[in-house]
């Protein structure tokens, strides 16, 4: 049961922004708030939340738009004072189907009917796997550049990652990576920090080649992110909003 909350409207608004900040664009692995997709959060007196969002083009893949909408709504509903959440996409070719589907809790196929030939689970999984590799490569490259030896790093445990004294930048990379570490299998502090997508340990000798092969994944995602930011700015004649709303 949802307990009544005396939190002020401002606090509630920043709660929602914080929750939205955890939702990523699956293709870019960047937060929807950082990307400037979310334009407005309003809250009714009884805990009815309404969120508006926009995308860089009229054609942006409806499947990813749908996923983002679903994820945003689910995140907002985790807040205990929220009674209802409505997430509304604007200026898109498929606004009607997406908004109806997301807010009525339909599956992608139910929302798009004959036009869709499958659901999004597999696509979601593909991009979670990619995100695991993007984040792992970013962290590993950072650690190696900072002077860590490849032969040591492949033996580090998750606990060791937490314990190391690090810069703010490294701390952010570690947090982002550990947030996806489960893709490589269930883990605790004593598990190897770095494993392949199948959960296998990495070999120090093969590490440069391994990094080479997953680096192109990150290059690609960063390129997409750069393109999307530019297009968003041009489309709405505005600099993207940042995540700072609290």
């Amino acid at each position: 049961m949802k307990r009544p909350s005396r939190a002020s409207n401002d606090v509630r608004v920043s709660d929602v922004w914080r929750k939205l900040g955890c939702v990523t664009d699956p293709e870019l692995d960047e937060s929807v708030t950082e990307m400037g997709f979310v334009t407005e959060v309003t809250i009714g007196g009884d805990g009815d939340v309404a969120v508006s969002f926009r995308l860089p083009t009229y054609w942006c893949s409806p499947n990813f738009a749908f996923m983002m909408g679903e994820d945003m709504r689910a995140k907002i509903l985790e807040l205990d004072w929220v009674r209802s959440a409505r997430v509304v996409l604007g200026e898109h070719m498929y606004v009607d189907a997406i908004n109806r589907g997301v807010n009525e809790g339909l599956s992608f196929r139910e929302a798009f009917g004959e036009e869709a030939t499958g659901n999004l689970d597999e696509l979601r999984k593909t991009f979670l796997n990619k995100a695991f590799q993007w984040r792992q490569e970013a962290l590993l490259s950072h650690l190696l550049n900072a002077g860590a030896a490849g032969s040591d790093v492949v033996e580090w445990t998750v606990g060791k990652l937490y314990d190391r004294e690090t810069t703010i930048e490294a701390h952010g990379l570690i947090a982002r990576y550990l947030d996806r570490r489960h893709i490589g299998g269930a883990f605790d502090d004593s598990s190897l920090a770095f494993v392949s997508i199948d959960g296998a340990p990495l070999s120090a000798m093969a590490l440069p080649a391994y990094l080479r092969s997953i680096r192109r994944l990150r290059t690609n995602a960063e390129f997409n992110g750069a393109l999307c930011r530019r297009l968003l700015v041009e489309r709405f004649s505005t600099e993207p909003l940042t995540g700072c709303h609290s």
């Binding site: 083009t57 054609w59 942006c60 893949s61 409806p62 499947n63 070719m93 992608f108 798009f112 036009e115 869709a116 030939t117 499958g118 999004l120 696509l123 393109l227």
Partner: peptide, 11 residues
Amino acid sequence: GPTILPLNRDA
């Protein structure tokens, strides 16, 4: 490349 109307088929 950049999209022209992809739906759930990953264009």
